[in-house]
Amino acid sequence: MGVESGSVGQSAAHEDGPSAQGAVSTVGSDGRPQRTSRRFPLFTRDTARPEGGGRAASGDAPAPARQWPVLAVLSLVGLGLLLTAFDLFRIGTMVIGVALMAGAVMRWTLPSVGMLAVRSRFTDMVTYGVLGVAILLLAMMVQPEPWLKIPFLDDALHFTIS
């Protein structure tokens, strides 16, 4: 009888699946046990908000005012895309690059930037800054009649095409 009940218990555990059998229990804030996922038990415990990820304006302000940094960057990017659509490619892409660099400056100087904060302050600044500078430099190197000429890039282009 003991063997049969043990085998029945094991088959019932397998019917529930591995998540039910291997779920980790923890105590919630109310003192009751809670079931948690074992998806990444060793590495991920909780997700923290990025530094500066709070509201950029007070909570009683309307939603657009609370997120003004990301709206400013997105508005400039939209303006750049609009200029690009109207055959001002170089100017439009330069506006996009400047918008990303402005996002990097805002991320560096402002204590709270709302949804402009994606990762840590350093990572956001480097990402926005590097992408902004790269887009700006590429926009100034657009053919014909580039505003900026970098000789080793011309040599690299001729080497890859030849």
Score class of each variant (00 low, 15 high):
84 T>G: 10
147 W>L: 03
64 P>E: 15
162 S>Q: 13
156 A>S: 02
119 R>A: 14
16 D>F: 12
30 D>Q: 04
72 A>R: 10
81 L>H: 01
84 T>P: 06
54 G>N: 12
31 G>I: 02
39 R>S: 04
27 V>G: 01
114 G>P: 08
83 L>T: 03
46 D>S: 10
6 G>I: 10
105 V>A: 11
114 G>D: 06
127 T>Q: 09
90 R>H: 01
37 S>K: 05
54 G>P: 04
19 S>K: 13
89 F>I: 13
30 D>R: 10
103 G>E: 12
63 A>E: 03
131 L>Q: 06
24 V>D: 05
10 Q>G: 13
135 I>G: 05
82 L>T: 03
112 S>Y: 08
157 L>M: 09
150 I>Y: 00
7 S>A: 14
1 M>L: 12
49 R>P: 01
88 L>K: 13
95 V>P: 02
120 S>Y: 10
157 L>Y: 00
78 G>L: 11
105 V>L: 14
45 R>A: 10
110 L>A: 12
89 F>Y: 02
53 G>M: 15
17 G>C: 03
89 F>N: 05
68 W>T: 04
60 D>W: 12
21 Q>G: 11
17 G>Q: 07
154 D>Q: 10
31 G>E: 11
98 V>P: 05
30 D>Y: 05
66 R>T: 04
144 P>S: 14
104 A>Y: 08
116 L>R: 04
144 P>L: 02
159 F>P: 00
72 A>P: 01
18 P>C: 15
63 A>S: 12
127 T>H: 01
66 R>M: 10
119 R>M: 02
110 L>S: 08
31 G>V: 07
67 Q>K: 01
86 F>C: 04
72 A>H: 05
102 A>Q: 11
107 R>D: 03
53 G>S: 14
70 V>C: 09
13 A>I: 08
97 G>P: 08
152 F>W: 14
43 F>P: 05
102 A>C: 11
46 D>E: 09
77 V>I: 13
144 P>A: 04
37 S>W: 06
134 A>W: 08
135 I>L: 06
102 A>F: 14
108 W>G: 07
33 P>D: 14
12 A>I: 10
113 V>F: 00
144 P>E: 13
68 W>K: 03
9 G>V: 09
93 T>G: 00
39 R>Q: 05
118 V>W: 13
147 W>Q: 02
65 A>V: 14
34 Q>I: 13
123 T>E: 05
40 F>V: 03
7 S>M: 15
133 V>R: 07
130 V>H: 05
148 L>P: 04
148 L>S: 09
82 L>M: 07
157 L>F: 03
113 V>W: 04
133 V>M: 07
10 Q>L: 03
147 W>S: 07
111 P>M: 09
137 L>I: 13
2 G>C: 11
60 D>G: 02
44 T>E: 12
149 K>C: 06
111 P>S: 14
3 V>L: 00
2 G>D: 11
161 I>H: 15
104 A>T: 04
25 S>G: 09
108 W>P: 01
94 M>L: 15
71 L>V: 06
15 E>C: 06
128 Y>K: 02
153 L>E: 05
